[in-house]
Design a binder for these strands. Structure first.
Length: 273
DNA sequence: CTGTAATCCTGCGAGC
DNA sequence: TGCTCGCAGGATTACA
């Protein structure tokens, strides 16, 4: 579900309703997430006000005012972060409830598969949360020359490269396939065989695809919703993802589906080279 | 350094 | 209709 455009959609939706609000309570669900919340973190966040809501790659950062720390959320595959009136019934698989201000509203984290995480971290010299140390540049700040340098000695295929968050942050399976199709590059191409011109084209394609997807408020495949159950619309504009067997929208050739880098991968065998 | 597979989970659709 | 099976947008780890 949530890759960069979906996370950005959530962040843009949450920002106006969360900034300036105080975290006055925390209740944990019965089941632990991928990385467990440490009890000692309670006192770090209680009584603190949310200064800003930002995105980095697929991570959501809630900066805590007058501290050098954040609550950081990763939505995994099925995570949802939403502000709800406290009187609303709690959905099954709600793992975190933060009471806001006087308790009329709550910030809830909901995640059936529990692949996501909610953590607290102090800012380090070089990163705001531990995982940021391994994170590559934002796609919109990615310089084609740097991208090319990063992949030009690699024997890995482009699909694996795009899914690698340390090369570029925020691209997942859907947008990797969409970007490669737009750039007319095969997902199986090795990094070392990509020319500088092709690297540039791919970087531009990533930006174009993500920009359009953000405009459409992300893609809703089965479970991505933001805010009050609103869905994204980009799934109607897929040119590659999940189109195996269907004809390429550019050249009418039947699209091929293979498993690559452990992921379902779809491409056109004719116009992607 | 690579790729592959397994792993953490629930939900959903396909197929019988 | 009800069952089982396989697969799913992510990230990490172990192993060949």
């Amino acid at each position: 579900m949530p890759e960069l455009p979906e996370v950005e959609t959530v962040v843009r939706h949450l920002r106006p309703v969360l900034v300036g609000r105080k975290l006055n309570g925390i209740t944990l669900g019965r089941h632990r997430l991928r990385s467990p919340w440490k009890p000692s973190w309670d006192s770090e966040i209680l009584g603190k006000t949310i200064e800003s809501v930002e995105r980095r790659g697929k991570w959501i950062l809630l900066q805590l005012r007058k501290t050098d720390s954040h609550v950081i959320v990763h939505l995994g595959m099925t995570g949802r972060l939403l502000v709800t009136p406290a009187k609303d019934p709690q959905a099954l698989h709600t793992h975190f409830v933060f009471s806001l201000d006087q308790g009329r509203d709550e910030l809830r984290y909901h995640d059936p598969r529990r692949f996501g995480s909610v953590i607290w971290a102090k800012t380090h010299d070089t990163h705001r949360f531990p995982q940021e140390a391994e994170l590559g540049p934002e796609p919109f700040a990615l310089k084609p020359k740097d991208f090319h340098n990063a992949i030009s000695n690699s024997s890995r295929c482009l699909k694996a490269i795009l899914l690698d968050q340390s090369i570029v942050a925020g691209v997942g399976n859907i947008y990797a396939d969409e970007s490669l199709h737009r750039a007319k590059l095969l997902p199986t191409r090795q990094g070392r065989n990509v020319t500088p011109a092709e690297s540039k084209k791919l970087c531009q394609a990533i930006v174009a695809v993500l920009t359009k997807a953000i405009e459409r408020k992300g893609s809703t495949i089965s479970s991505f919703y933001y805010g009050d159950g609103e869905s994204g619309n980009f799934q109607t504009e897929f040119n590659a993802y999940d189109r195996a067997g269907e004809s390429c929208k550019r050249c009418r050739t039947p699209m091929i589906g293979i498993r690559l880098a452990g992921r379902m991968t779809t491409y056109c065998p004719v116009c992607q080279i």
